[in-house]
């Protein structure tokens, strides 16, 4: 055993990459994942068509964020689509993938086989979390890319009017759109860590997904109740819409910093809780 130990303890970094690659394969080869991404990609199409069909109607500042500017600049469909999907669609998809990560393997009876490989539980958990984070990014990019495509087809593109009333070149706007997609993706890693933790608690994939999505809905409701304003700054979704601050001139960093800090906190707390649970539990399935 003493001979085997170093081998087990220090698998080459490439080996870890291999583990991540196989995890990514598990996630992205699933029909379920592809359907989720497909649904996310349709949201901008629906919003785009709805705005196009109602171009001559009243636009008195109602409706989703940024929607008044979509007809002038298709790039704003990216911001609108992200603002529309961020409260529920995107995190729900993350909840499904994260909740399924460990519990799904357990309920399918494949977790024990995964652990037979000399990867180690910590490493497996990290690979799982990394694959969920990659999904956060891919899901966000799918929404953004679909919105950009639809926006370019249905509406003119050009110089971008920031919400502060300042006009910047299209390239600057595109750069801000990319930064916003990045911020939105990072905004989701908090709920990803939470979902992963819930996933380590149970052997039922469905239960973990349902619980994660339930927590998301509860948190979103709490964030909307004015009487709970004291705890709201600690809810992972509280600063999600601060991505809009990237569209101001000059950019306001306070909300963004709070959002990213909160995500880091959730990742640290629930990531380590998932680790504590997963490395000490009995794997019976």
């Amino acid at each position: 055993m003493s001979l085997a130990e170093p081998l087990v303890r220090n698998p080459s970094p490439l080996w870890s990459l291999g583990l991540l690659r196989s995890e990514l394969g598990t996630v992205f080869r699933r029909w379920r994942t592809l359907v989720l991404l497909g649904v996310l990609a349709t949201v901008p199409v629906l919003v785009g068509i709805a705005v196009k069909a109602q171009t001559h109607g009243d636009q008195g500042g109602h409706g989703p964020a940024f929607i008044a500017e979509v007809t002038n600049n298709g790039l704003f469909l990216v911001f609108t689509a992200l603002a529309v999907t961020l409260p529920f669609f995107l995190p729900m998809a993350i909840g499904v993938i994260a909740g399924d990560a460990i519990a799904g393997e357990a309920s399918a009876g494949t977790l024990r086989y995964l652990l037979v490989a000399p990867a180690g539980r910590t490493r497996l958990l990290l690979a799982k979390y990394a694959s969920v984070m990659v999904f956060c990014l891919v899901a966000t990019l799918v929404v953004a890319a679909s919105a950009l495509l639809v926006g370019a087809v249905l509406f003119p593109l050009g110089d971008v009017t920031l919400i502060s009333g300042v006009t910047v070149p299209f390239s600057d706007g595109l750069l801000r759109a990319a930064a916003i997609a990045g911020v939105v993706a990072v905004s989701l890693i908090g709920i990803a860590a939470l979902g992963l933790f819930i996933s380590t608690l149970t052997d039922s994939g469905i239960a973990a997904m349902a619980t994660t999505v339930g927590v998301l809905i509860t948190v979103q409701i709490m964030d909307g109740v004015p009487q709970l304003h004291a705890v709201q700054p600690l809810l992972f979704s509280h600063y999600w819409l601060s991505f809009a601050d990237l569209l101001r001139a000059p950019v306001m960093w306070d909300g963004l910093a709070k959002d990213l800090g909160l995500q880091a906190l959730y990742t640290a707390v629930f990531g380590s809780a998932a680790w504590a649970r997963f490395t000490t539990r009995d794997i019976t399935a």
């Binding site: 303890r9 652990l115 539980r121 490395t279 794997i283």
Partner: peptide, 16 residues
């Protein structure tokens, strides 16, 4: 699979 104490991180079947 019952890993020895030193290797408990490295998973396997850690049953009671």
């Amino acid at each position: 699979i019952q890993p020895p104490q030193a290797e408990r991180d490295f998973g396997g079947y850690a049953g009671f």
